[in-house]
Design a binder for these strands. Structure first.
Lengths: 234, 234
DNA sequence: TTTAAATAGATAGTAATACTATCATAAAAA
DNA sequence: TTTTTATGATAGTATTACTATCTATTTAAA
């Protein structure tokens, strides 16, 4: 699922995430053009939004041809699923590292909540993928990957596996805290979705939240923590 | 905000909801063509999904011209906001009726949760609008009304007022139950969003929930109730 | 009652989108 | 060295997302 690749020139370790092959026509990780398509899809979707994003604009951005992009991805919706699901694989990987060696299930769950509800501010960049931009894309466009008429079909093709795996992992952490809790999966998907939604609201529809824009005010993580631990304790 | 109109022929009372004038170019409530546009937008979006929905297809469906539809709405995104916000006005109206005369704040909040998390099964139809289809549209397409790059602009034009008012009303009910609760708005938007999302997951991505498809199994409402009352009690 | 205004239909047209197809060339693998 | 594979270059099509114009009809005002 996760592999490490050493960059020969700079001797950095870079993370390689194996993506579902049904997501693409040609694996974008295996060529310069493919990597550029992913890299600049993220930049361009972040800049102009998914609706305005087209393969023609992307091709122009990377000095390639539209036909060239179509050789990698069937359509822009597949690109969206690709990058969003990459994000969830990456987050699961980060989470597993963070809670490695921790025994206390409550601390583990808290770390999980912090991880997904804290917008990425430091300049992280795994290879060609900019995770800072990716966080904002998941916030604004993430839900569009499954809110479609083809959701059942896409789900059968296992396109959402990383997202569902992430939620299942959090559900497991919830059950570790209280094995008798009745709704681990629903609570898990609630916090995973709300981590991003509440940050989106805070930024764009602040009256839907209790968070100000200043750094001192209560954070999404605190709200979700309170909610989760009250709920699982009953 | 809400007015009643008597249909002269059938002597039924039908609800008229006053919509923000910035949402349309010509008020669709004031003409036969306008009402047909709204009625069949709901039917068509429900049938083929918002992405595939076009004004040309809509015009064909109602034997009108594409140009005719453009005289009412700037674009299909405005139509989506129109019907989704109509839904929230309608739900606030239903909620106010349902909890009218009830004193106990917890019962009021429970009624609110039931209202939004129970898919509409009975054959309700206010005038030309089919609320059963509308519930499903809000579930699948609702979030797309604000998950755009223009969210700030649209919000300034008060296009999302009914949605925000509904959430504010639920937040008030939460505060009535516990005036000291720290996150009434975030909890409110969480349950309002999750009421629809969890029903969507149950239908299309069941592993994200703990609900089966059978009628006997636990319901979204029960999960949200447990979560809300645990949370506000701390 | 005449006149003017508003509404809708019919039709045409345009730029952009979302693709598919073909051919040539360069680079990499057999 | 031959063959495969990847990319570029170019063209073309149906659909989308509009805008514009002209006419017929209905409604409201003078």
């Amino acid at each position: 699922m996760f592999t490490f690749v050493t960059n020969k020139l700079r001797m950095e370790l870079s993370l390689k995430i194996k993506m579902n092959e049904k997501l693409f026509l040609r694996n974008p990780e295996e060529s310069e053009l493919g990597r550029k398509i992913v890299e600049f899809s993220i930049i361009l979707i972040h800049r102009i939004g998914f609706e305005a994003f087209t393969f023609k604009k992307l091709a122009k951005e990377i000095s390639a041809t539209e036909a060239g992009v179509y050789r990698y991805f069937e359509n822009k919706h597949r690109v969206l699923i690709y990058i969003v699901e990459w994000y969830w694989s990456w987050q699961e990987y980060r989470l597993r590292i963070q809670i490695n060696n921790i025994k206390n299930p409550e601390i583990k769950l808290k770390k999980a909540i912090r991880l997904i509800s804290t917008p990425i501010e430091e300049d992280i960049s795994t290879g060609h993928i900019n995770e800072n931009l990716l966080y904002e894309i998941v916030m604004l466009e993430g839900a569009k990957s499954f809110l479609t008429k083809q959701v059942t079909e896409d789900n059968k093709a296992k396109l959402f596996k990383p997202y569902k795996d992430f939620c299942a992992y959090v559900a497991k952490l919830i059950l570790e805290c209280n094995p008798k809790f009745k709704y681990p999966h629903s609570l898990s998907s609630t916090i995973v979705e709300m981590a991003h939604s509440q940050n989106f609201y805070a930024k764009h529809l602040p009256s839907l939240t209790d968070f100000g824009n200043t750094k001192e005010e209560p954070k999404v993580a605190s709200f979700l923590e309170d909610m989760v631990f009250s709920t699982i304790k009953g």
